[in-house]
C-alpha cells in the first residue's frame, strides 16, 4: 500500500479527526506494528497517524478517585512510577516481566492492549485490576468517548471491540481497597524476553482467612486474555485452605482452552495454569 498521507497530530481532537473514516494506521511505539507490517501479517492503510506527539495521552495520575494512565504511557513509565508501585504493584511486576528494556522504553500501554494478543503481558494485571479503557473518536463536531471494561474489550486473537476511527486514549482502574492483594506470574525460564507460555494475575481481598472479590486473569490459554470467572466463583467467599486451592486448580484447569503451538502444548499450558493458581493463592495466604 502506498502511503498517501502522514500526520503527527499533537492533540486527541486532531488525531480523532484524522482517524475519521477509518482508512488510517495508528503509529505509536512501533514494537508490534513494525514486525507485523514487515512480515505482511498486517498492511499499512493509506493514512498514517503518528500519535506520539499527543502529550495529553501520556502520564499516570489519579482522577476522580481512579488511577488513570494515558494510552501512550510506556511500559518503562509504568515500571518507574512511584504511584503505581504504591497503588498497583501487580502492574509494575508485570511491566518488569515485559519483553526487554528497549521494548519497554518504546511500547505504549494502549498499544499492548490494542494488539489484543492472547499473551499480552499488560492485559493480565489490568484485567485483575478491573480496568476500563477509554476509546475516543470524532463524531463530526467533537470528540466522543466511551469506556469499555477491559474484560469485554477483547473479542479474539488480535481483535477487540474497537471500531474504525477509534483511538484508545487512556486506561483507568479503581484505587485499591484495603486488604487488596494482587500478584502476577509469567512462565520462564527467561525473566522477561518471552512470549508467555502462560501468564496469570490474581487479585482479591483476604479477611480472616476468607477470600473475596476474587479476580483471576490468565494469558495465552484462550483466544483472548481470559478472565477466569468460574475459577473466581469457585474461590469467592471460601476459606483459603488446601481444599479451596485444590478446587481452584481443578476449576482453572477446566476453564482454560489452550492450544498446541511451537512454544508449548495445551497439556503444558493447562499444567502451568494449575501450578500458577496454586502459587498465587499460596502467595495470598502468605501475605
Amino acid at each position: 500500500m502506498n502511503i498517501e498521507s502522514y500526520n503527527a497530530p499533537d492533540s486527541i481532537a486532531e488525531a480523532a479527526q484524522l482517524l475519521q473514516g477509518g482508512n488510517a494506521t495508528v503509529v505509536a511505539g512501533g514494537t508490534d506494528l513494525t514486525p507485523q507490517t514487515e512480515s505482511g501479517v498486517r498492511q499499512f492503510a493509506a493514512t498514517l497517524v503518528n500519535i506520539q506527539r499527543i502529550d495529553e495521552m501520556r502520564g499516570i495520575g489519579v482522577m476522580n478517585g481512579r488511577i488513570r494512565i494515558g494510552g501512550l504511557t510506556t511500559v518503562t513509565d509504568i515500571l518507574e512510577s512511584k504511584l503505581l508501585a504504591d497503588e498497583a504493584p501487580v502492574l509494575v511486576d508485570a511491566a518488569d516481566r515485559f519483553a526487554s528494556s528497549q521494548i519497554r522504553n518504546a511500547s505504549s500501554l494502549a498499544g499492548n492492549l490494542c494488539n489484543a494478543s492472547p499473551a499480552g503481558d499488560m492485559c493480565i494485571p489490568l484485567l485483575v485490576l478491573d480496568a476500563e479503557v477509554e476509546l475516543a473518536c470524532w463524531d463530526g463536531e467533537s470528540i466522543s468517548t466511551r469506556k469499555v471494561s477491559l474484560e469485554r474489550f477483547f473479542t479474539g486473537p488480535g481483535k477487540s471491540v474497537m471500531v474504525a476511527g477509534e483511538l484508545m486514549t487512556a486506561i483507568e482502574f479503581p484505587r485499591c481497597a484495603n486488604r487488596f492483594v494482587a500478584a502476577f506470574l509469567k512462565s520462564g525460564p527467561r525473566p522477561a524476553l518471552e512470549i508467555s507460555t502462560v501468564s496469570m494475575g490474581l487479585s482479591c481481598s483476604l479477611t480472616d482467612g476468607v477470600i473475596s472479590n476474587v479476580r483471576v486473569a490468565i494469558g495465552a490459554v484462550a483466544p483472548t486474555p481470559l478472565r477466569a470467572k468460574r475459577t473466581e466463583a469457585a474461590l469467592e467467599g471460601k476459606v483459603l485452605n488446601e481444599a479451596t486451592i485444590q478446587l481452584a486448580v481443578e476449576t482453572a484447569g477446566e476453564e482454560v482452552s489452550p492450544i498446541d503451538d511451537v512454544r508449548a502444548s495445551a497439556w503444558y499450558r493447562k499444567h502451568l495454569t494449575g501450578v500458577y493458581i496454586r502459587r498465587l493463592l499460596n502467595h495470598v495466604n502468605g501475605s
Binding site: 525460564p189 507460555t197 503444558y268
Partner: peptide
C-alpha cells in the same frame, strides 16, 4: 525444555 522436564515429572508422555 521446561515442558519436557514437566512431562517427565508429572507422568505425561513425551511428544
Amino acid at each position: 525444555t521446561p515442558e519436557k522436564v514437566a512431562r517427565a515429572l508429572h507422568g505425561a508422555p513425551q511428544q
